Simulated assay, not measured.
Amino acid sequence: MKAAVFHGPRDVRIENVADPGPPRPGDVMLEVVRAAICGTDAAEWDHGPVLCRPGVTLGHEFVGRVVAVGDAVESLRVDDRVVSGAGISCGQCRWCLLGRTNLCAEYRTLGLQVDGGLAEYVSSPAAICRLVPDACDDDAAAMTQPLAVALHALTRVAVGDGDSVAVIGTGGIGSFIVAGAARRAVGGRVVAIDIDDERLATASALGATESANPGERDLAELLLQLTDGVGFDVVVEASGSPHGPAAAIAGARRGGRVLLVGLHGAPRELALTPMILREVDVYTTVAHVCDTDIPAALELLASSDIAAVTKGPTIPLLALVDDGLRPLAERRATGKILVAPAA
């Protein structure tokens, strides 16, 4: 079968590899009908390995059709259309027993440490697969995993009715956070902030009540200007920019919450005393919890136009590097890039 194999920085090859073979007990083999790529894939191609294991098949966002079922699998049957949560947890460690499977001591991810779905076929534990509702087409279903990540982030910071929310950075995950926040902060305010006007237009279509391009303005000052000096109830930092965390903390109200989503390649300096004196709570987030966030994402995709608004081009697997990873790494990509492995 064809697969996108990661070998190192600027070295992802579309190769002929052996298919996964008969599924092990508890696993299913899927024929991948649609996959998607994100900033993590592009970063691994551009300057990895960061999370990837060299030699792994990429792809942690995908939907597929069950073609074989391993022993002890009772929840799925051949021909079922499913998405995989991609994150594999042990189910036995302290974090798994607390329901925080994304923090599992042995956490692994399809497409990063285990062969993933940028291939014609992939093997996945059945326990992390969920049936796709008929109202959710393949393109939308391929976006389930990143939307689940966004919904988990919003749960971490408890966005709710009436909240004023600022989202800094409305790229891949940031745009999904805007969409989720618009549906959770009922009667509140969701402000999208980005330096790219096209991304801001997408954020508005996803439900942002306002948008702002800071241009050359100081980001912290902008956040305060937008709230008459009070600050937001919740500030989500999803850009990963060097000045983003400090600005987010400065732009939160007294007793407000800050959620750090964007990853950073270097330490950042923060003024802690003002944060302490204003009792600003700082949260972090990673991945998602399959049992809750994947079903919530599927339900939202099936009942909204989120996929249609965010969808970008669909490319064949052979074009993955030049038409997918490269433009995404160079910030030239528009919309969520989808991949048709069989094309």
Rank of each mutant, 00 (worst) to 15 (best):
A4E: 02
A4T: 08
A4M: 07
R10N: 12
V12Y: 04
E15V: 02
D27W: 14
E31N: 14
A35G: 09
I37Q: 07
G39D: 00
D41I: 03
E44I: 00
C52T: 15
P54C: 06
G64W: 05
D71G: 04
R77F: 06
D79W: 15
D80Q: 06
R81S: 00
V82Q: 06
S84R: 12
G91D: 14
W95F: 15
L103R: 11
C104I: 04
D115G: 10
A119D: 04
V132M: 08
D134Y: 08
D137A: 05
D137E: 12
A140H: 07
Q145R: 14
P146C: 13
P146L: 06
A148G: 02
V149F: 00
L151Q: 03
T155K: 15
D161A: 13
V165T: 00
A166Q: 03
I168Y: 00
T170V: 15
T170S: 12
G172S: 14
G172R: 04
G180L: 11
R184C: 00
A205Q: 09
P214A: 14
L219C: 02
L219M: 07
L219P: 03
A220E: 00
L223F: 09
L224V: 11
Q225R: 10
L226F: 09
D228V: 10
G229N: 07
V235P: 05
E237K: 03
P245F: 10
A246Q: 15
A248I: 09
R253Y: 03
R257S: 11
R257C: 02
R268K: 14
L270W: 10
T273M: 08
M275F: 11
I276C: 09
E279G: 04
V280P: 03
D281K: 13
T285S: 15
V289Y: 01
C290M: 12
P295Y: 06
A296F: 02
L298D: 12
E299T: 08
L300G: 01
L300Y: 01
L301G: 09
L301H: 00
P313Y: 14
I315K: 08
D322L: 10
A329Y: 06
E330S: 09
A333P: 04
T334N: 06
L338C: 07
A340C: 12
P341G: 14
